[in-house]
Write a protein that binds this DNA or RNA. Sequence first.
DNA 1: ACAGATGGCTTAGGGCTCGT
DNA 2: ACGAGCCCTAAGCCATCTGT
Length: 338
Amino acid sequence: MPTTVSEAFAAAGLSPGGSVPWGTKPALPERGVYIVSLTDSLDSLQGALPRAPLSPTAFEQWLSVCPELTVDGARPPLEQLIQRVAAFWLPDEVVLYVGLAESQSLSDRLGQYYQTPLGKRTPHAGGYFLKLLSNLHGLWVHYAASANPTHAESVIIGLFSSNVSDTAKRDLKDPVHPFPFANLEWPRGVRKVHGLRGATERRANQPKSTTRTKNHASRSGHTSPSRSLFDRAVTAIAPQGNYASCKAQRVTAKNLSRGQIRIPSTGVSSAKSLFPASRSAVRVVLRGSLLRASWDPRIGPDRERSGVLRVGAILRDLVGENEVLIVTERIDGAISID
DNA sequence: ACAGATGGCTTAGGGCTCGT
DNA sequence: ACGAGCCCTAAGCCATCTGT
């Protein structure tokens, strides 16, 4: 069942603060969240469009300002690029993008969104799919003040994703991540598999990653802003009944910091055979919590490596350093890790 | 005050090196 | 040969800084 704007705000416990046409800054000096919609109505799903109203001219511009833009690793012809973006359109939804203003006013943040050209990283690189629409200037921006915009945004996208209809999901390029059309990431770090690379300009001075790695390690106690939502999403527990058990590799501090569990490929302790043969999203029950994880069997062109199961930052809450987890295939086919 | 530029945070993913 | 550890880059999104 598609989500209306008012349902989205209500889920986050917010009262709508107003609506403005795309390009108009709201007169609201507070922090909060905003929803870009096909309709000015808070309660209606009328305005939903069966196909994405994409602007070929915008795509041409995009290709010209992003010479390194590729689809699935290759420079695409115009038509292929348009088809790829269109494959993320949800025909029965009116909500196209959910954004937030955490440390500045909604007015300022929306101003940055409006003024960021396609292909530019700054000041607001997110949600750029919207700028490929031919009806961009017919869109509406609904906003609400919030004391905790990050949490509110997360709740709204979570609600939206869980409400996407099966028929809409069936036609999506990436049905595992049914976010609003222009939201490419939720929660932090989990992205739509759109196959686009080089969609925004490179940074002028990308810092060396040694510094980034050290910083990352020093932040190992960081709490992901999406954690609370993820916890709430983790509700269903798979039925009991075990089938086969194998050992995962020891969980190192590095593994914890990266939210990943390594699965050996060979030997008596091989648990890799319990997972899909190709890269995919999988559901696992980690210490009683049902999680959505990404699975990479790491079957390289030269040789096979340990598989990597990425569950995200929640791993640090559920598993300690140096633990050796037991991977079990339950009788119902679910994979549990304890 | 505003617009634009730069930086920070976080995760995904490819691939190299090292130890056993 | 294989498992394990790590380096490095890319990406998405928001915050902060800086110049006008």
